[in-house]
Design a protein around this nucleic acid. Structure first.
Lengths: 235, 235
DNA sequence: ACGGGAATATTCGTATACAGTTTTTGAGAT
DNA sequence: ATCTCAAAAACTGTATACGAATATTCCCGT
């Protein structure tokens, strides 16, 4: 709505710290940060050719927004624990059906076309077996329909759980068996949007969240077993 | 879960900026900030006897969390417009029933006792016709049961709309006819909590939000008419 | 060789300073 | 008296500096 109220939406950043914030968030969103990299304000400042203060502000802001986690030695990607992820699934079940329903009534033809395009991209990525590309396409698909939610407060609330959604996606995409489910789910959601069928859109996204939770639980289980066996081998 | 992960829960703050953040948030929560006060970092720093940096950090953090709004000259309470308030009612209808249901299953006997005490205080305030005191009591009642919501993410989401709740309360409390409705509603909610009746608690809070919206719409209408007549008189 | 503890290094939080920008103030002109 | 424009004040953002806390390293004793 208003132009540059907050730089959270990739709009132009006015201050240096805002620019660094957006740049780093882009890296986080694109998965360019390994799970073990430690972001230290001095290093970030040196990279951008500024003093510690803007870098520190950007890092602290990202931490407060939940995209990074402050440690005693630098900032790292948040190692979101199992419990937290489950809690956010709970929240998403409360919010996303209503949001999708409202989006169904509000999406413009141009926005629907964009959703169609990115769905085609997702299909191509799946066919090519390119997980990274599929991940990006799903991210864009989700952000696109969320952007059409007219309730600003609801929209912002959803955008806050981007990190959780991404983390879950990264875990569940590892199993290729999940890819068709995800793409088909998005296609059904898109079709509901095209029909302006708010009820179907809400139902579909609710099923989507449930399926996502199931896939996450399975991936979590497998990761847990793997860790157990490997540590058993080590010990 | 973990002890001092974030200082958002009134836990011990480690750094000066964290302490200032918590103190200022307490003032915001208790409604001690007028709609026109401008918080400037230098003034805050002087009040707490520190330099600008911790004060600035605290203010910016509060702004990023949504409790304050940055302006060209200091930070102010976010000025919610009509549309935004209605949107947040929508959000509250999605979140609060589930939150109250979970709180009903999670409230300890001590917490229930505290709710009972603050309800007695609310009754006394209503009998005395002390709007300010009733406002505070309702605020404490609400914060108390929300504090018992075990889902951390959901709890934080609810706490973000404190400003809206307060603004609505201030408007609707002006009409004394609303006072019995509010106190009676809280009493029913408390009784549902005591019975560990999650369904009744969820239903009750949903009705509460609807009633709050109706009262707000009426107050808004009246304020609108009053403005129209006064401007007509002036013109 | 291995464990413990002190010295070192790294990093964080805060203080102070300065430049750019915007709002307010005040003097002068109409 | 009011309007205009310039000077001043206030505020923000960033730079640099310093003390404190914590991790790391290295040396020494066992």
């Amino acid at each position: 709505m208003t132009a540059g109220k907050s730089s959270a939406n990739s709009s132009v950043a006015q201050s240096t710290s805002g620019q660094i914030h957006d740049l780093l968030m882009g890296r986080i969103q694109r998965g360019e940060l390994g799970q073990d990299v430690r972001l230290v304000d001095t290093a970030v400042a040196a990279e951008f050719g500024v003093s510690r203060m803007p870098a520190r502000d950007a890092l602290m802001r990202l931490a407060h927004e939940g995209y990074l986690e402050p440690t005693t030695r630098g900032f790292m990607l948040p190692r979101l624990d199992h419990q937290e992820i489950l809690e956010i699934f709970d929240l998403r079940r409360l919010l996303e059906p209503r949001a999708a329903a409202m989006a169904a009534l509000n999406l413009s033809d141009e926005e629907l076309k964009a959703l169609d395009d990115i769905q085609a991209e997702a299909h191509a990525a799946m066919a090519a077996g390119d997980i990274e590309r599929l991940h990006r396409a799903c991210e864009i698909f989700r952000n696109s329909w969320i952007a059409a939610v007219p309730n600003v407060s609801l929209r912002k609330a959803l955008q806050r759980y981007m990190t959780q959604v991404q983390a879950v996606r990264l875990m569940t995409f590892a199993d290729q068996a999940n890819h068709p489910l995800i793409v088909a789910g998005n296609t059904q959601l898109y079709q509901a949007f095209c029909r302006r069928d708010a009820v179907a859109a809400g139902d579909r996204i609710l099923r989507f969240v449930f399926e996502g939770e199931a896939a996450y639980l399975q991936a979590h289980e497998e990761a847990h077993n793997q860790t157990a066996t490997s540590s058993a081998q080590a010990g």
